[in-house]
Amino acid sequence: MSAGKIITAAFSDETIRELKAGDSVFINGTIYTGRDAAHKRMFEACLNNEKPPFEFSGSAIYYAGPSPAPPGRVIGSIGPTTSSRMDKYSPLLISRSLKVMIGKGKRGPEVIEAIKKYGGLYLSATGGAAALLSRCVKAAKIIAYEDLGTEAVRELQVFMFPAIVAIDANGNVFPSFC
């Protein structure tokens, strides 16, 4: 991917709102991983008014569980997993400011509605391009739910991480993503 706007996490509302469905971006900065099991816990933490594992406001959650890092590497392969499995949890998390999501595939109507209501963003990374995406990760550490192994929440420092806007803050959806 050549053309594309560089955006830096944590994201301002202005950055989010400037992006339109179909735009290509490169992400720099800090993002967080979380998939099925971590979402269940974050969702329950929100319901119980417990502190989330990281500051949600302006953050992006990347639906990913990496393969183990071989010696000398920061992380193993790390492509996106199917986003729709997080649909049950996302509307509540979006309402609590975790409104930038990176994954692959479709989102349900409740998620699209929440993105529109709270001015969120859903980015598609290329599923299966996991070796390529691992090169964009410059540092990684587990910050929560370590017992979940690959499903633990990791803080990643990324550089020129490629993605495409699938749903923008106005709720415009790229076809095939709903």
């Binding site: 990496p66 071989p70 492509g79 290329t126 070796a131 090169r135």
Partner: peptide, 14 residues
């Protein structure tokens, strides 16, 4: 991606 996986001996997909 396939080229990187082959050269760096990491999985094509996580």
């Amino acid at each position: 991606n396939a080229k990187i996986a082959r050269e760096e001996k990491i999985p094509v997909c996580q």
